[in-house]
């Protein structure tokens, strides 16, 4: 960034080492925001519920609403049996949600804008589905790929489709979140860059900068929506995949 008028929308995704603890273990800005995300989630949930009030305070109510929101979502998708995965789904939802929301704050790093993070989370979900599915149903878990009520002669076509769709789940799950967050942040940065560039072009540019500024404000609101929505989508899909592990015959 030698030229201050030159805006680089990719710079925000750069990973910089903060505490070099070794090459692959380095504490980077990404690590910092993962720690902050987890710290915020845990401290908020614990501090807000410390009073254990029968009539909740506002802060406690937020925690309770998050709890019931995720619980209802999981129960709706995977039934009562799915509730044994509640801590897992809740952790994923909160991690993605707070990671996304942190990213909207200027100068904050967005952990979910890196495909390796979202892909690792997706692989984690699919691993849990596979391991639990085979543990609970044994070889019967493979019935997942054989839809019920389909005539036998269609199976050679349907089963490979089901397998491919299953294998593409971690990719679609991770790319959806990653691409949404990445694209949103680049767009936001580009428009914010317009404001900056036009602002340096004298008073006419200063006036003209109002347009991209308004756009940036609107985009920030949109990004807020996307951040929440993508966390929700990630958690809902996690619940539905877990449902497949619990009830493989659909």
């Amino acid at each position: 960034m030698a030229d201050p008028t030159k805006v680089d929308p990719i710079h925000q995704f750069g990973i910089t080492s903060m505490v070099p603890l070794g090459d692959s273990f380095a504490f980077t800005n990404s690590s910092l925001f993962m720690v902050l995300t987890v710290g915020l989630i845990v401290s908020y949930l614990l501090i807000s519920t410390a009073g254990r009030k029968l009539v909740p305070t506002r802060a406690q109510l937020v925690s309770e609403m998050l709890y019931e929101f995720v619980a209802n979502m999981l129960r709706g998708a995977a039934g009562t049996e799915g509730m044994k995965f509640f801590p897992f789904v809740f952790s994923i939802f909160m991690f993605v949600l707070i990671g996304n929301l942190f990213g909207i704050i200027p100068f904050f790093f967005t952990i979910t804008s890196h495909i390796v993070i979202t892909f690792a989370l997706a692989i984690l979900v699919i691993s849990v589905v596979l391991i639990y599915g085979f543990m609970k149903n044994g070889i019967g878990f493979l019935k997942l790929f054989v839809p019920q009520g389909v005539p036998g002669y269609v199976l050679p076509i349907v089963v490979p489709i089901e397998i491919v769709s299953f294998l593409s789940r971690p990719i679609s799950l991770s790319v959806r979140l990653f691409a949404n967050i990445l694209a949103g942040h680049i767009t936001l940065k580009v428009f914010a860059g317009f404001v900056f560039t036009m602002g340096t072009l004298g008073w006419l540019g200063f006036l003209g900068a109002a347009l991209p500024l308004a756009m940036t404000v609107a985009l920030t609101a949109l990004e807020l929506l996307v951040a929440v929505l993508q966390a929700y989508v990630f958690a809902v899909l996690t619940s539905m995949y877990l449902n497949d592990a619990i009830h493989p015959s659909h």
Binding site: F25, M34, V35, I117, L121, L124
Partner: peptide, 11 residues
Amino acid sequence: GTQLIWLVITF
């Protein structure tokens, strides 16, 4: 590598 390690630790 570093992202995965810290993801594992924090998650």
